[in-house]
């Protein structure tokens, strides 16, 4: 049974249809890629799934519930987490605080304990601190726990963003060009990390990535988007030899 089932999704900005008749399926613990030329509408699809944009039509069924048009924070609580194409960390906060914020939705002390500093507050904070450190360790960021997020090198910022997303305990993680701006070495490590995360956390992962060899190597299935519509989907092998896909990408290089 599929974890995410999108049917006939539609989004337009003014006159422009950024996403049109979009159909998509993702099974539990599957790793699927979404590729397409610049401006194809990939990020818009992510924004629709996570509630940042409201769709003009269609349904997004996640865990048997239509989440289309819900508020982003509710969608997060249902178990969807994401990263952004242009990193959006809490820049002026420390690395560990960035992760701690992800635990807030399950905070187990109330406002009164906060203000009166009751034992419940200290217990709760201790748990949050320990959990946040666990995630930093997974991403080898524990030594940087007190650094300001915006002072991290680019690759580490990307990793921190994934750590923060994972800390919300999602069942589906969606990554918007996680390897953008990384060197080949970093990219390889990141991909290994992503595969490992999927197994260890038992997650479904949806991935946008421009690096073709990388997408082909790691994804089980691939969807190709062009001008807001799916033009192909299937196994990496099938996509590699698909004429429409080649044209779409050639068209991009020529134009």
């Amino acid at each position: 049974m599929s974890l995410l089932e999108i049917t006939n999704l539609h989004k337009s900005f003014g006159g422009l249809s950024a996403v049109l008749k979009f159909n998509f399926r993702l099974d539990a613990q599957e790793l699927v890629g979404l590729i397409g030329p610049n401006g194809a509408g990939k990020t818009t699809v992510f924004n629709l799934i996570t509630g940042v944009y409201k769709p003009n039509g269609g349904s997004i069924v996640f865990n048997n519930e239509d989440i289309a048009g819900m508020a982003p924070y509710n969608i997060c609580k249902k178990g969807v987490a994401r990263t952004f194409q242009n990193i959006r960390l809490f820049k002026d906060l420390s690395v560990i605080d960035n992760v701690k914020i992800a635990f807030h939705k399950n905070v187990n002390y109330n406002l009164l304990s906060t203000i009166l500093r009751t034992p419940a507050f200290f217990r709760g904070e201790k748990i949050i601190e320990e959990k946040a450190l666990e995630y930093l360790k997974i991403f080898k960021l524990e030594d940087k726990r007190d650094e300001i997020a915006s002072n991290l090198p680019y690759g580490e910022q990307r990793r921190l963003e994934i750590a923060r997303a994972l800390a919300t305990k999602p069942t589906m993680l969606i990554l918007d060009e996680p390897a953008a701006g990384m060197n080949p070495q970093e990219t390889r490590e990141l991909m290994q990390l992503i595969e490992w995360i999927r197994k260890d956390f038992q997650l479904s992962i949806l991935l946008i990535e421009h690096d073709m060899s990388l997408v082909m190597g790691v994804c089980e299935r691939i969807y190709v988007l062009d001008y807001g519509q799916i033009i192909a989907h299937g196994l990496p092998e099938e996509i590699r030899n698909n004429k429409k896909v080649i044209e779409a990408y050639l068209g991009e290089e020529v134009g």
Partner: peptide, 21 residues
């Protein structure tokens, strides 16, 4: 934790929403 949630709104409202806040 409440304070961090409040500050996250200042830092990046959209990212904050997507952290479940």
């Amino acid at each position: 934790s409440y304070g961090r949630a409040i500050i996250s709104v200042r830092e990046d409202e959209i990212a904050s929403e997507l952290m479940g806040i």
